[in-house]
Simulated assay, not measured.
Amino acid sequence: MPSGNRNKGVALALGVLAVGMVGLAFAAVPLYQMFCSVTGYGGTTQVAEANPKGVIAREMTVRFDSNVDKTLPWTVKPASPITDKIGTVDTVTYVATNNSDKPITGQAIFNVAPDLAGVYFNKIECFCFTEQTLQPGETVEMPIVFFVDPDLADDRDLATVKDITLSYTFYASDSEGS
C-alpha cells in the first residue's frame, strides 16, 4: 500500500474515532441517568403509581433534608421525619418561600442515603418532577407521596438500616420567571 493511501486510512480512522468520542460524550449523561434510575445507583429513587406489594411489619424512619443553592432566594423547610411500616404510602410536605421581590422559578434534584436504598424508595407524586414558580413573598406547600418497597427487607446489605434520608437541593431554573 503506498504511503499516501496509508496516511489517508489512518486519518480516516482517527476522524471516525474522534467523531465517535464526541458522540459518546453527548450520550454519557442520559445513559448515566438511565443507569441510575434502573439500579438506584447514587441514591436515585424510583417512580411508581402505587404500591402493589403491600405492607410489611418492619418499620423504617424516613428523614427529609433540604439545601438551597445560593443563587435561589428561597427558604425551604423540609418535612418532619416519619416512621412507618415499610410499604405504607405516606404523604409529607416541604414548605418553600420566595424571599425576593420578583417571581422566581426553581427546581429540585434529589438523592437518597444510604445510596443502596434509592432503588427501594418510590415516589408516586413529587414537586421535583416539575419546575416551580413562586411569586414575590409567596409561600407554598410542596407534597411528596412515597413508599419504601417491601423488597428492601430481602436485601442483606440493608438488613440493619433503620433510617433513610431523602435530600433535595433546590436551584434556580433557567426558565422564564427566574
Score class of each variant (00 low, 15 high):
residue 109 I to G: 03
residue 115 D to V: 13
residue 85 K to T: 14
residue 109 I to Q: 04
residue 45 T to K: 06
residue 51 N to R: 06
residue 59 E to I: 04
residue 98 N to A: 11
residue 66 S to Q: 09
residue 39 T to F: 03
residue 74 W to A: 10
residue 59 E to W: 00
residue 102 K to S: 06
residue 120 Y to D: 00
residue 67 N to M: 08
residue 122 N to P: 05
residue 100 S to W: 13
residue 47 V to F: 07
residue 33 Q to Y: 00
residue 50 A to L: 13
residue 58 R to H: 01
residue 84 D to A: 15
residue 97 T to R: 08
residue 33 Q to A: 03
residue 45 T to S: 09
residue 80 S to N: 10
residue 41 Y to R: 02
residue 69 D to G: 11
residue 32 Y to N: 05
residue 105 T to R: 03
residue 46 Q to P: 05
residue 103 P to F: 13
residue 95 V to N: 07
residue 57 A to I: 13
residue 79 A to S: 14
residue 82 I to H: 06
residue 25 A to R: 01
residue 112 V to L: 07
residue 83 T to N: 08
residue 42 G to V: 02
residue 51 N to F: 15
residue 87 G to E: 13
residue 33 Q to W: 00
residue 120 Y to A: 02
residue 78 P to N: 02
residue 74 W to L: 10
residue 48 A to W: 12
residue 41 Y to M: 08
residue 102 K to D: 05
residue 22 V to Y: 15
residue 62 V to D: 02
residue 35 F to S: 01
residue 111 N to M: 10
residue 38 V to D: 04
residue 70 K to D: 13
residue 120 Y to L: 08
residue 50 A to D: 11
residue 73 P to L: 05
residue 109 I to N: 04
residue 76 V to F: 02
residue 30 P to G: 13
residue 98 N to E: 03
residue 57 A to K: 07
residue 73 P to S: 12
residue 75 T to K: 07
residue 49 E to S: 15
residue 63 R to G: 03
residue 112 V to Y: 02
residue 116 L to G: 09
residue 95 V to Y: 11
residue 18 A to L: 11
residue 53 K to E: 12
residue 53 K to H: 12
residue 114 P to H: 14
residue 71 T to N: 10
residue 106 G to L: 06
residue 33 Q to R: 05
residue 49 E to Q: 07
residue 113 A to F: 08
residue 90 D to A: 14
residue 108 A to W: 00
residue 39 T to A: 03
residue 61 T to D: 10
residue 94 Y to S: 09
residue 59 E to M: 03
residue 57 A to R: 10
residue 97 T to S: 10
residue 93 T to K: 11
residue 117 A to M: 04
residue 48 A to L: 12
residue 30 P to T: 08
residue 65 D to L: 10
residue 63 R to F: 02
residue 75 T to Q: 07
residue 35 F to I: 00
residue 39 T to Q: 04
residue 46 Q to S: 03
residue 44 T to R: 00
residue 71 T to E: 14
residue 99 N to C: 12
